[in-house]
């Protein structure tokens, strides 16, 4: 008995292993193109950036190895830290604003009702416009002499003197927030809507039978079951906002008076206005570390609670 059991399972097990091994190799072959893309367009450039960040690397002329010199310089670069502080403030405000608009929209378009598809399309439309084109459009809308908002308010008699929205910090900042919400809320809405639709209807019905009101159902069923969707939408929004550049570059040029310089804008300036590629690379590495850390914190905060599938 023992000899048989010892003898018979052995050969098939060996065959099975070679089969699994072969399948693994085939699997690797299938993902090879994707891996190659990641290596060529992500890992190698990332490595080069790290390598550049250890050099004094001007756009033209001789480069020289300076070890951690760039990183030491970053510690004293108050304008970078100011830009980072502004980026943080912008990220906080814009993320709250996007969710404040996108969540009600998602609840509104989630259930089928007349014209739902029309609404969904309407709200989603701005998301398909590129950030640069959207910025150019709003740059015109916000123009004080030839744009829409200020001249229209003036012609309607709402204000007695044309008001330049982009000339001072607060109106300029909130104009950008409005533009980004207009542009991004539709996309967040679609993500949240997908999350809402994945919640089984019977759970809601059971809660209704138990006598739960709409607010209680939202808090105790909808929100917990949307945890993963929320995490996705939040990480996309935060990462996108921390990397914000186009709208501030195109509409405001970092103004008024350099008060809206974001971290990426500062990296761009150092690299391509001041031609300090090495320093720009070091700044990029710092920003990368910050972004990865923030994403990990968000994933941890929105992790699955123990025991919940």
């Amino acid at each position: 008995m023992t000899s048989i059991t010892a003898a018979t399972p052995a050969p098939p097990r060996a065959r099975k292993l070679t089969g699994a091994g072969r399948r693994q190799w085939i699997g690797l072959l299938y993902v090879a193109p994707a891996v190659a893309l990641v290596v060529v367009f992500f890992l190698i450039p990332l490595g080069m950036t790290a390598w550049m960040s250890l050099h004094n690397w001007p756009l033209m002329g001789e480069r020289s190895y300076i070890g951690l010199g760039n990183y030491v310089a970053i510690l004293h670069d108050t304008r970078f830290w100011n830009a980072l502080r502004f980026t943080g403030w912008y990220t906080l405000v814009v993320t709250i604003a996007i969710f404040a608009v996108a969540f009600p929209l998602a609840l509104f378009v989630e259930r089928p009702r007349p014209l739902t598809n029309l609404y969904r399309t309407m709200f989603f439309m701005p998301a398909v416009v590129g950030f640069a084109s959207a910025s150019l459009l709003w740059s015109w809308l916000l123009n004080v002499d030839s744009g829409l908002f200020s001249p229209a308010a003036y012609d309607l008699g709402l204000i007695d003197r044309k008001f330049n929205l982009l000339a001072t910090f607060q109106p300029a900042f909130w104009s950008i927030i409005a533009m980004v919400v207009w542009k991004v809320a539709g996309f967040t809405m679609i993500i949240l809507m997908a999350g809402l639709q994945s919640i089984p209807q019977d759970l809601q019905e059971a809660a209704v039978i138990d006598g739960a009101g709409p607010f209680a159902r939202f808090r105790a069923i909808t929100l917990p079951l949307m945890r993963r969707t929320l995490a996705l939408a939040l990480i996309l929004s935060v990462a996108g906002s921390i990397l914000a550049f186009d709208q501030f570059y195109i509409i405001l040029r970092g103004g008024p008076r350099n008060q809206t310089l974001t971290a990426v804008y500062w990296i761009f300036n150092q690299s391509f206005v001041s031609f300090k590629l090495g320093y720009g690379a070091a700044l990029s590495m710092v920003l990368l570390v910050i972004l990865v850390a923030l994403s990990l914190v968000q994933l941890w905060l929105l992790r699955k609670p123990e025991g919940l599938d």
């Binding site: 970092g254 103004g255 008024p256 008076r257 350099n258 310089l261 206005v273 001041s274």
Partner: peptide
């Protein structure tokens, strides 16, 4: 020159905007 004067975020550009309108 680029860092001082031409850059949209350089000290010259910032100053002229502040002194003309600030």
């Amino acid at each position: 020159f680029n860092d001082l004067i031409n850059s949209a975020n350089g000290p010259w550009t910032q100053m002229i905007n502040e002194v003309f309108f600030g």
